[in-house]
Design a protein around this nucleic acid. Sequence first.
DNA 1: AGTTAAACCTGGTTGC
DNA 2: TGCAACCAGGTTTAAC
Length: 280
Amino acid sequence: MPELPEVEVTRRGIAAPLRGARVLAARPGKPLRWPLGCAAESLAGRTVGDVARRGKYLWLPLQAATAGPGAASGGLLMHLGMSGSLALLQEAPAPGPHDHFDLVTDRGTLRLNDPRRFGAVVWSDSLHDAPAATLLQRLGAEPFDPAFTPLAFHAALQRRHSPVKAVLLAGDVVVGAGNIYACEALFQAGIHPALRADRISRPRAARLLAALRGTLARALELGGSTLRDFTDAHGVSGEFQAEAAVYGRAGLACRACGGSVRRVVQAQRSTYFCPTCQRR
DNA sequence: AGTTAAACCTGGTTGC
DNA sequence: TGCAACCAGGTTTAAC
């Protein structure tokens, strides 16, 4: 499920309550994408720092009680995959069949629910060491980074020969958009999803970046999108999907021109677009 | 090197 | 009603 807005909504829900929390225990469940990479017992006694986000990854700093030089830091790199969500529970019931990781703290239990188990919880000594550094290394620019200018976006697109939709999804030019927001941003920008990235003009690249930022910002306001199972840290669903212009609307009328929204498959994923409003 | 398939998993929906 | 086929918010890894 989760694209940047859902991950950021999650981060905002847990960051303040968990800042300074003391870890009492960690309970891994069924295997996720990768092994935890440390003994669960080694997390007990650590203190949670400021939860950060990079792309669709969350970083939970976990400081050791004995503050020595270097070896005391580290943290958990978390990813929600396709179907994951995090909840911060004051009184956690016994884990259900799809609860695959618990971080028990004195401020509540942070619980990962992830039916498909494409998500991940991985220990890393720091963001700058493997495995975290390896995973984050391929990520493109943060969409809201002011240093990421329309010109820089256009230059990056010029180097790619794939359809622009596939480039947005790949996340190595700019992170944050998944299948929903890539479709929506392209619609807002009036760009055909099959258009090769290197064929996009400078003005259209600028328009696409603005559309991407606008789409992600609007989704953030609405608490993200909930298609089937996403909820924020308090169990609340997102509302963005209700105002999606094209995503999931194959055969329905385009909200702008009244024409029929089409569904095609690109890079093994469904793409929704309006052939009238979006041009090559 | 750069682009495109295969793989990981479970469950809900659709169609015969 | 039963069951097969297809679909789903992601991204690493392997293969052209």
